[in-house]
Structures are given as C-alpha cells and as structure tokens.
Design a protein around this nucleic acid. Structure first.
Lengths: 219, 219
DNA sequence: TTGACATTATACCGAGCGGTATGCAACGTC
DNA sequence: GACGTTGCATACCGCTCGGTATAATGTCAA
C-alpha cells in the first residue's frame, strides 16, 4: 500500500494513491467546512477532479461516507491516546500525556476531527436507512468508549486525591470539550509551525487539567 | 406585547402570540436539532401548524431567519452577562457571576444558543446573498464583542494576580467553550428541575474558573 | 359598503440533490 | 483473442427545496 504494489496489510502513512483514502480526505475537507447536508457528493468528487461514480463505487451512500470519515478520525485518536494511557506514571501524568496526544492528533488532521465532532454532536436524524443507523450507533458507542478512557484515569486521579472530587461525567465531558477547542477556532492561516502548535497544545492541556483542580507543586 | 394589545416597547416574556417570535422559536428548535441546511422552511412552518407563506412574510430568506434566531440568543446572553459584569467585586467574583449567568441563560433557551453556536462555528459559506453576508458579519462581530467582555475581566484578574498569566485569547476561548458544554451534551429528558440545573451551572463555572489557575482559599 | 392595507394560504417554478443504470476501457487469464 | 471482472464516467430520474406569484381573507377607517 505504501509503495505501488506490496502486500502490507493496512494503510498508515500518507498514500493518496489509494482511492478510498483520497476520497476520505476530500470528504473530510468538504464536510468539515460546509457541514454534512450542505455538502453534495458531486462536490466531494469535484474537489479531487474525480466524478460521483467513482465515489459511489467505494461507498454505498453519502451517509456511509460521512461515517467512514468520522471513524477515520476516531481511529487515530484511539490509537494515540491508548498508547499514552498505557504509559507508567501517576494518573495526572498519564492524563496530561493523553490530553496532549488528543490535541496534537486532532490538529494534525483537523478536518477529520471536525467531522467526527459534527457526527457526535448532531445525532444525524437524517440517517434514515437502518444500515447507516447501525453504523452511526457503532460510532457513538466507540466514542463513548473513548470518553471512558479519560473518565477512568480521572477517577483514578480523584481517588488518589490529585483532583478535587465531583460529578465524574461532567468533569470528563468538560475536559474533553476544552481539549477540542482547536476544532472550533483553529485556523490554518493564522497559526502554524510546530512551535505554535506545541505551545497551543501545552496551553490547552494546562487549562484543561487545571480545571480538574489539580494540586501541583509549581503553582 | 405581553397582553393582547399594549404599548410595551420590547418582548421579554413568553408571548407566542407575536408571530415573529413564534416563528423564531420554531426555527430555533428545527435548526438546533437538524442543522441549518437540513432544515427546510416548510418544516419550520409545519412545526407551528403554519405555512411557508407566513414565514416569508416576516423574513426575507431562510438565511435571514437563521441569523435572526442566532441573534436572539446572543441578545439574551449580552443582557444577562453585561449586568453581571457591572456588579462590584473582584475580577474573580465578577467572572464567576458572568459565567454563571452565561450558563443559566444558555440552558434556559438552549435551542437558540445551539443555533448561535452553529452560526458562529461554521462560518456559513452558503450565505450567498450579500445582505445575509452583512448580517452574518454583524453577528460575528457582536459575538467577538461578547468574548471581549470576558477577555477584559480575565485580563483584570491576571493583572491582579488571581489567575495565572498566559495567552489571553486562548484562555478566553477555552473558558467560554467549557461553559458552552450544555449545548453539546445537555438533554432535556435526562436532567431537569432547578436543582439539577443549578448544580450543573456550579460545576461548569467551577471547572472553567479552576482552568484559569485561580488561587482560592477554600481548596 | 367600500376601499386600502396587512396578513396568510396555495400553487407553482427552476435548480440541485442523492442515487441508479448503463456504457466503456483496462486488465488478467485460459 | 474471447471473456469475465474491476474501475470509473456519463446520463438520467424522481424528489425536495428555496423562493415567488397570486389569490383569498381579514381588518380598520371613513
């Protein structure tokens, strides 16, 4: 997949030769800045110089394409954050690593994560077909599982006395929402460069963790 | 306006006899749970048992209706938060009052604020007509002014040493995003009652303010 | 009663959409 | 080189939507 023809099992790098992934990227861009229902399949196709037929050859419907796009983003998040969670260290340290991984992963493929957020937020009532309904439910349950990872580590931190106690669900949701900030206000034009990016990530993680009432040494 | 025919200058209470406001409420509900482009004008009309003609009598286009809906929400926010800001007290106290007002106002008319968020977030590229473009820009600038109120109080708190220093823009945006949580996960069915509501507001305000690194007495 | 005006219902139009049917070119294979 | 198979483009269909034109229905004043 990386090269022209090899037998490597899965895609991981940037390989736009794969039509499926190329379509996903175009879809992410379109869905991200126009929204699901304002985006036409023709538009996604036109963005790559392809045609609608090509897309419908790989995806059965617009809804399926949307969910595939959102799932793609979620996959990346789970990968990275899972790795961070398995590090050794205090709950606070691991949560910081997870949060940082979340933010950086999100900014790296911002449009995908905007789509993911879109899918999770508006519980697309327009997904009429039962097949799509199934896919959507599957996406939502995976997203809940993702939240669960954070929730577990936060609980750990609370029990260890590192964070102040409170409604665990609210704590988790608020933390994640803060971390998702880039999806709302980040603009490729204004900020860029690894430097800025790392700074942003640090800030977000800092403010989000402080929100949990952590008691640190520094200040 | 409150009664059948009086000369009170502005609407404030729940008075669905006014067609304009009744339309706005229906629009808020529709736009809120289906999104701008997935909502048809016919749908908004049907929601009140009215017809499309009636809506187009009061609003020139779907986009104008959308922006009017979002503006309605923003008006309420500005009213309440402005009052809270003018209270006397430390920056931290005022910010807390503002935040609380923000959350409570938002939850009271949740769909309006979901629409507002929708309008601010996706910079509706579909607003083709220059008139609508103007209205949208006006909305955005008012929203920025709203952010500015928070920003100013935060700066004050930073200079007073109550909050840790940092990028003021990021601090403000993250704070407000946290406070907006209800727009994302609040469900009328699950939670209700003033009690829960006040609890939620307290939690959100607490976590949001802690995020600024405030140093309080309590803990 | 009449006429001017505001308000609302109905009928309709053109455009764009999601999705399908079909055709066609390339490729492997015996 | 005939033939199935895959990958894609084109043409087309039915439907819905935003918006308009128009007619019907009040409503108030004189």
């Amino acid at each position: 997949m990386q090269d022209a023809n090899s037998a490597t099992p899965k895609v991981e790098t940037i390989s736009p030769q794969e039509p499926e992934e190329a379509i996903l990227r175009a879809a992410a861009a379109c869905f991200s800045d126009r929204g699901f229902s304002a985006t036409s399949v023709d538009e996604v196709a036109r963005r790559m110089g392809y045609t609608k037929g090509r897309i419908y050859h790989y995806f059965r419907s617009k809804g399926e394409l949307f969910i595939a796009t959102a799932s793609f983003g979620l996959d990346r998040l789970i990968e990275e954050v899972d790795a961070a969670m398995k590090m050794h260290g205090s709950a606070q340290q691991r949560l910081a690593a997870m949060s940082r991984a979340h933010v950086l992963t999100q900014i790296r493929d911002l449009s995908f994560h905007r789509v993911l957020l879109q899918g999770v937020t508006m519980v697309v009532r327009g997904a009429t077909t039962p097949d799509e309904r199934d896919l959507l439910d599957k996406l939502l349950s995976r997203q809940r599982a993702y939240e669960g990872i954070f929730r577990a580590v936060i609980r750990e931190g609370v029990e260890a006395g590192t964070f102040r106690s409170g409604n665990l669900t609210l704590m988790t949701k608020t933390l994640l929402l803060s971390l998702n900030g880039a999806c709302f206000w980040y603009s490729e034009r204004e900020n860029q460069g690894e430097e800025d990016l790392s700074m942003i990530a640090d800030h977000l993680v800092g403010q989000a963790l402080f929100g949990l009432g952590e008691k640190i040494d520094g200040f």
